[in-house]
Design a protein around this nucleic acid. Structure first.
Lengths: 227, 227
DNA sequence: GACTGTGAAACAGTTCACAGCT
DNA sequence: AGCTGTGAACTGTTTCACAGTC
């Protein structure tokens, strides 16, 4: 019954990236189980709720230690605590949003961020027309004040929702200000500044991928017309 | 010099899912090369523009046929045409958006969709307050008219931006109306209706994944304070 | 009997390295 | 000489199947 976290000072095991990508799913499922007053959950149930299979759940969870009891299942509360702390959701994360256009504005008031402990504490835009606009309880600041805001408020995460042409420059500046993580919504490849982790969300790509598969399905049908 | 597409009637090769996921990146890069009047591009250049490595580019492109010339590079125009047609971007795709809240509203007017041939042709919401609202040149319709709109306009893609609790029901209804692909922004797992492909975009998860890595980096630093 | 934790097998995806063409 | 196309090696991920525990 080993605890992979081991004694203090021991490097924690590397968690496979595929597993990391599923933690938010488990997290969500566990929140709902916890609210429903469930004390334990089997890998089978958790798998169903997260939309994966039971073997994957067990393998994934085993990287974090032993939260299950054979014959019984996993302890919901303990497991929720572990995953919450792994995901760093025990404290609030401050974010700065760059580019308060349509999408940016929606992101600022997106309930899902706040609920999970991400707070858009500042928003900036290059457009003087947008500066001063109120969005919820936030006022859009000029982009020139980006560095001051990041440093004063100790902001850790940058969200880019500018036009593609501006994204690299914004990323570089965020890096210089000490931001360590960037979520990029601008549909362009950006080179990560030194020491910064960048994740891209490309909305149009998602539709393109759906279109790819749809197109393949329908042309497969065309080739075998008699079904 | 084989052409994997083969004679008509031959099933096309299965394209690895990882490759499909990168097609939008290549597509974007090729558009920009084409606009810049480049006739050819090497795997090295294309890799740089797409943010991947050259071996991957060559492997990926080889699944679609032979668009390169050894010693020279790839024919930009021919390759762009191939990828455009693989992604099904030679015709416009009609989408229906369900849930015209903050995020939904932003998605309707999101330029990236229109630019790549995705047209949000209809939007519905359950909230009577929102029905009748104009967003760009679209008027929000009552959710009860969903089926009629999908069938009349022959809409192929559904975009869900409702609250999580409503998402499964909406997905099921979209399936019944004949929608074949769904892009789900509601932060919940939805079971795909028969014959429908669902992709999930979970915005808060993306931040959680960034937080996970940030947290690991900083606690790694704590454990080895002297650097 | 129920259910976890985990090696081992199977599969998928990436990278290497080089033969083959221009 | 330059660059693609691709088997082969490698790395990462998923699934299997079962020993171990309650």
């Amino acid at each position: 019954m080993n605890d992979p976290q081991g004694p203090p000072g021991t490097p924690r095991p590397q968690i496979p990236e595929a597993t990391v990508g599923r933690l938010p799913l488990y997290h969500r499922a566990l929140i709902s189980l916890h609210q429903g007053r469930n004390n334990t959950v089997s890998s089978e149930q958790l798998a169903e709720m997260a939309g994966v299979n039971a073997a994957k759940v067990r393998k994934d969870l085993s990287y974090f230690g032993t939260y299950g009891t054979r014959g019984v299942g996993y302890d919901v509360e303990a497991l929720l605590g572990e995953i919450r702390s792994d995901l760093g959701l025990t404290t609030e994360w401050k974010c700065v949003l760059v580019g308060a256009g349509n999408l940016g504005t929606a992101l600022i008031s997106f309930a899902g961020f706040r609920e999970r402990g991400f707070h858009v504490a500042a928003a900036v835009d290059v457009d003087p027309e947008k500066v001063g606009t109120r969005i919820g309880d936030l006022v859009v600041a000029p982009q020139s004040s980006l560095e001051a805001m990041v440093r004063e408020q100790d902001i850790a995460i940058g969200i880019i929702s500018t036009i593609p042409a501006a994204a690299q420059e914004v990323a570089d500046e965020l890096g210089r200000c000490g931001v360590r993580s960037i979520l990029n919504f601008a549909p362009t490849v950006i080179e990560a500044p030194e020491g910064v982790l960048v994740r891209n969300v490309d909305l149009a790509s998602e539709l393109e991928i759906l279109a790819f598969h749809d197109q393949r399905r329908s042309s497969a049908r065309d080739r075998r017309p008699a079904v």
